[in-house]
Each structure stands twice: as structure tokens, then as C-alpha cells.
Design a protein around this nucleic acid. Structure first.
Length: 524
RNA sequence: GGUCGAUUCGUCUAGGGGUUAGGACGCAUCCCUUUCACGGAUGAAACACGGGUUCGAUUCCCGUAUCGACUACCA
């Protein structure tokens, strides 16, 4: 007896840590779900445990084809693939609840035998009538509970013979949990501390549906137990039903191995209030899903972070900091560093508003850290789509001067195309201010000197020739620089001009300048 | 309505009985520079309110307000 508590603790502590991510395949995986998966993954890696994925598809009416593949691909893209899953099963399969269907009824029956659950035969209409009656009587929360169940059609009110007859006749029924009238239910949440709820505020939730499938409540307890889950890390929206789950563990006699709970703060809209939704994405023009998604039923499209040009490591870093921080001032974390620094204790309690600016900033940081070779490959791929080709060397040179000003890989081409395609139009505001006789004179001299130049056009040689051209005409280089840029690029802003010249090359440079002088009328 | 939860700059947050309340994003100014960007520097910007407890509260307690989640044979 005196050792009881000790052994229980010991048993608990010696168990291998196992956590799970349990999404429903009802559509694209929401960013909040991705964060939940990430925290589960980090916790498992940090503790040397296992990260499993279980598909919660007990609602067959909400099944969406492709959703499961979407979940898998999203996690793979981010590099946080589960150790055990439907497509990579371990010893606790199956990993789809629909495939576990035969397992649940015996547990529901166990509860009935113990007197913690009962059959109910009420139709949807009868339930609706009950709610209306209660609402009319100004009952604060109309629900199927210890009081109202005495007036409903269930195995608690019906004679035993009739219950048997109804069951035998194949009449549809559900199995409900019998919530005790007076009991304090408490749980120690890893993030929120002690949460206490009185059982009188709970209702007799359905455990087995009339289609023979369990509800989430039954299935998640049975499966977590069978899959030896030690920690349930999930969204805050589950907090209100957590006491029900605690009660179920107790009634099954599984208290000793009941997982610890950690309810994550919600991801909120960037403006106003409320949970982040697809509507916000459409409204603000940023994604809330990891990847593009087209709903197979409605045809509705949603954009993804991946297709928008977010790098997986940047997205991951951003996501990790939505509700968690390492406690110091570091901001940039690789997946390995996140694992090293992660702890549930440092997850915040309050909801987190979604700020796409921060996501962009992270992307810029990671983009700049990439090598010219890697980014050059991006650029070459983009160019190929346009039917153009350049050497890896040239691609490397271009991205080298472009990456400081890009947010997404696609910007490399979008913002840098002027280096491969000559301008046909010129920024009028710059032209009217800077395109004058002095500039034209210098540019003419420059093309002459450039034609005569034999050798490597490096940023340095390009510059010294330009300086000579200005000096020859007794003009200060700074005065005409903007015009020179305009002539070659068509615009007034961009990366270091001499580096651009070196990339463009001598022949093209002369062509562009000559064209500009012909095309642009001299201003005052 | 009920139950549960949350509340530090605009946003993400650190901190915690005595601090000039720290950092990051964004914003502004300046520097660098041939422009823009990068980078650097500087600046504006916060403890929801009211009561306690205390020598002292942003920090602890209690209320209030606000916001949110949940309240299905959905998860």
C-alpha cells in the first residue's frame, strides 16, 4: 500500500515517451494543425520518444479524398514525418480509426457492464424536442445529462425486456456515457496547471454512434491507451472536453497510464478576434495552409505556403515561435536547434495572432543564408519555364547580387530579369530628372571606350572605364549615375550597377546604351 | 446564457514583489552608398481596470471588463 504511489510514478516515468498527431482527413491541414504536429514532433525528438500519426476518420460523412495524402506530403515537406503512421506502421496499428472500427464496441460494452454507459434510442427529432422544451423552460444549458436522461428513451428508463427487444430488432441506438451527478473532475495540464470542472456541467456524450462508429471521445481514449501514448499535445479547443476524457480513463481503469495533457494556445486572426480561418487568408492575401489545396467537392482553391515561395525551414522556424520561445533572444533556429531548445514549459498560455510579416522576414533570413549555387538552381528552373537558359555561373552571379533584396526565390527572377532582358521602356520620373546632355555625353564616351576595351569586364574595370568617361568630359560621375542606370536597366533602383554591368557584358551594354540614347529625348 | 481559458509595445514575446520593463517583426530618423535594398545606429511604442496583501505590486490574491474556445450521433 505505502509503495503504491511510488510504483505508479515509476511505471509512468519508465515508459517510452510516445506522442501523436491526430488529424481528421476533412480537407487541407490547417496551419494550427501543422504547429500541433511540429510541437509533438519536437517533443518526441527532444525526449528520445516516438511521434505517431493517427488518422481520425470516424465521421465517414466528412471524409474528403486526398486529404490524407495532403497531410502526409505537408509533414514530409517540413521534414517532420511521423515514426509510425498509416503509411509507415509500427506495432500499434492500424493507424486509421476507420480500420480500427471492430475494436471499439468491446470497450463501450465494458463501460455498460460497469454501469458507466448506457444505450439510448432517442431519435434526432426527440433530441431536438428535448432541447426545445428545456430552452422554453429557461434551462441554462439544455443537454442530455443526469437529470434529463430520466425522461428520455434509454436503457436506464426503459424496462430491460424492451431494451433487449429494441436491440434485437435492429433498432438504431447510440451508447452514451453516464456522467455522475456530483463529482469534481480535475486534470493537471502541462501548460495551464490544474483545471477543475464539476461533472454537473458535463453532458452524457455519445460514445458509439448509431452507424457503429465510435465518436472522437471514445476512439481517442481507446487508441491513445492502446498506442501507449504518454502525452497528449493538442489544441486548446479540446480543453472543455478534457474532463470527459479523464473520466473515461478512470472508468476504463487506465488512470495509471493516463497521458499527460498539454493544451496549446490558439492561432488567432491577424486583425480583430477569433480563430484564424481560410477567410482571413483570402481577405489578406496570405496562406493559412502548408500547400496548395483544391477541394475535390466544391472545387474551391486555397493557397499554400510552399507554393507562395516559403522555404520549409523558414516556415518551420516561424511556426515554432507562434506560441513558444526559447527564453533568450535568439530567433533563427534550424530544426535540430529547435529540438534542442524545445520544452513544453516554455509554451505560452494565450492565443497568438498571426503576423505574415514575421513569416516573410524569416523567409528572407533563410533565403540570404543559402548558397549562390542553390539559389542559382532556383533561378535556372524559373528561366527554363520562360524558355530561357543560362549557365550555372551566370545564374550564380545574378542571385549573388539579388538575394539581399528577395523575399521569395521567385523574386530572384521577377526582380532580376532586367539583367537578361533589355529594357524597352524607361522610368519617366527618373528620365525627366536625370536624362540630360551631360549624361548623354558621358554615355556616348562610355560606349566608345567600352568598344575599345579588350579584356574581362569585371565590376572594377566597368567602373574605371565609366570614371574615365566622366573625367574626359569633366563631369562628376555622381551627377550622371542615375541616368546611366536608367539607360541600362530602365529603372532608377537596383543592385550595384557595376556588378550588373559585369553580368550583362560588354556587347549587350553597348547595345542598351545606344538604344537608350536613341529612344530617350533629352530633357532640359 | 453556461462551463473553461486568456490578458506586457500595433504584432510575437522576455521578465518578475523594488528593473531606465529587455528582444524581435513592423514603423520613423540618421549613417553607409551611384539608387533601391542589405547592414549599422537611434527613436516612438506596452504591464486592461478596480480593490486588497505588502514598506513597496506590472509581478501574489479577489473581483470587473474585454477577448476567445467549447456547448452535435464533427473532430
Amino acid at each position: 500500500m505505502w509503495m503504491g504511489g511510488f510504483t505508479a510514478e515509476k511505471t509512468k516515468m519508465n515508459r517510452e515517451i510516445r506522442v501523436r498527431f491526430a488529424p481528421s482527413p476533412t480537407g487541407a491541414l490547417h496551419i494550427g494543425g501543422v504547429r500541433t504536429a511540429l510541437y509533438n514532433y519536437l517533443f518526441a525528438r527532444k525526449t528520445g520518444g516516438k511521434f505517431l500519426l493517427r488518422i481520425e476518420d470516424t465521421d465517414q460523412t466528412r471524409f474528403v479524398p486526398g486529404a490524407e495524402e495532403y497531410i502526409k506530403e505537408s509533414l514530409d515537406w517540413l521534414g517532420i514525418s511521423p515514426d509510425e503512421s498509416p503509411w509507415n506502421p509500427g506495432d500499434c496499428g492500424p493507424y486509421r480509426q476507420s480500420e480500427r472500427k471492430p475494436m471499439y464496441m468491446q470497450y463501450a460494452m465494458d463501460l455498460i457492464e460497469k454501469g458507466h454507459a448506457y444505450y439510448a434510442f432517442d431519435t434526432a427529432e426527440e433530441l431536438e424536442a428535448m432541447r426545445e422544451r428545456l430552452t422554453a423552460a429557461r434551462v441554462v444549458s439544455p443537454q442530455y445529462n443526469s437529470i434529463t436522461r430520466t425522461q428520455m428513451k434509454n436503457s436506464l428508463t426503459l424496462p430491460e425486456d424492451e431494451v433487449k427487444a429494441r436491440l434485437a430488432s435492429g433498432e438504431p441506438y447510440v451508447i452514451r456515457i453516464k456522467i455522475p451527478r456530483k463529482e469534481e473532475v480535475r486534470l493537471n495540464d502541462l501548460i495551464r496547471g490544474w483545471v477543475m470542472v464539476h461533472s454537473s456541467t458535463l453532458d452524457d456524450k455519445v460514445l458509439m454512434k448509431s452507424d457503429g462508429m465510435p465518436t472522437y471521445h471514445l476512439a481517442n481514449i481507446v487508441d491513445d491507451h492502446l498506442m501507449k501514448i504518454t502525452h497528449v499535445i493538442r489544441g486548446e479547443e479540446w480543453l472543455p472536453s478534457a474532463p470527459l476524457h479523464v473520466l473515461l480513463y478512470k472508468y476504463f481503469g487506465w488512470e495509471e497510464t493516463m497521458p499527460q495533457f498539454a493544451h496549446l494556445p490558439l492561432l488567432l486572426k491577424p486583425d480583430g478576434n477569433g480563430k484564424l480561418s481560410k477567410r482571413d487568408a483570402d481577405k489578406h492575401g496570405f496562406p493559412v495552409f502548408p500547400m496548395d489545396w483544391t477541394d475535390p467537392n466544391s472545387g474551391e482553391k486555397a493557397m499554400g505556403f510552399r507554393e507562395q515561395g516559403y522555404l520549409p525551414e523558414a516556415f518551420l522556424n516561424f511556426l515554432a515561435f507562434l506560441g513558444w520561445n526559447p527564453g533568450d533572444h535568439r530567433e533563427i533556429f534550424s530544426l535540430e536547434e529547435l529540438i534542442e531548445a524545445f520544452s513544453i514549459e516554455r509554451i505560452g498560455k494565450s492565443g497568438t495572432k498571426f503576423d505574415i510579416n514575421k513569416a516573410k522576414w524569416y523567409n528572407e533570413q533563410y533565403l540570404r543564408a543559402k548558397s549562390d549555387e542553390e539559389l542559382g538552381a532556383y533561378l535556372m528552373a524559373d528561366l527554363e519555364k520562360e524558355g530561357m537558359q543560362i549557365t550555372p555561373e551566370k545564374a550564380g552571379q545574378i542571385v549573388h547580387i539579388m538575394k539581399e533584396r528577395a523575399t521569395f526565390p521567385a523574386d530572384l527572377w521577377k526582380e532580376g530579369k532586367f539583367m537578361l532582358i533589355a529594357p524597352t521602356e524607361f522610368d519617366e520620373a527618373i528620365a525627366s530628372k536625370k536624362w540630360n546632355l551631360e549624361a548623354i555625353t558621358v554615355l556616348k564616351t562610355y560606349t566608345e571606350k567600352m568598344s575599345a576595351f579588350e579584356g574581362d569586364l569585371t565590376p572594377e574595370t566597368a567602373k574605371s572605364i565609366l570614371e574615365e568617361a566622366a573625367e574626359t568630359n569633366g563631369i562628376k560621375l555622381g551627377k550622371v549615375m542615375q541616368a546611366v542606370r536608367l539607360a541600362v536597366t530602365g529603372v532608377g533602383a537596383g543592385p550595384d550597377l557595376m556588378a550588373v554591368f559585369s553580368i550583362i557584358g560588354k556587347e549587350e551594354l553597348i547595345k542598351r546604351i545606344t538604344f537608350a540614347i536613341e529612344a530617350l529625348p533629352e530633357q532640359g
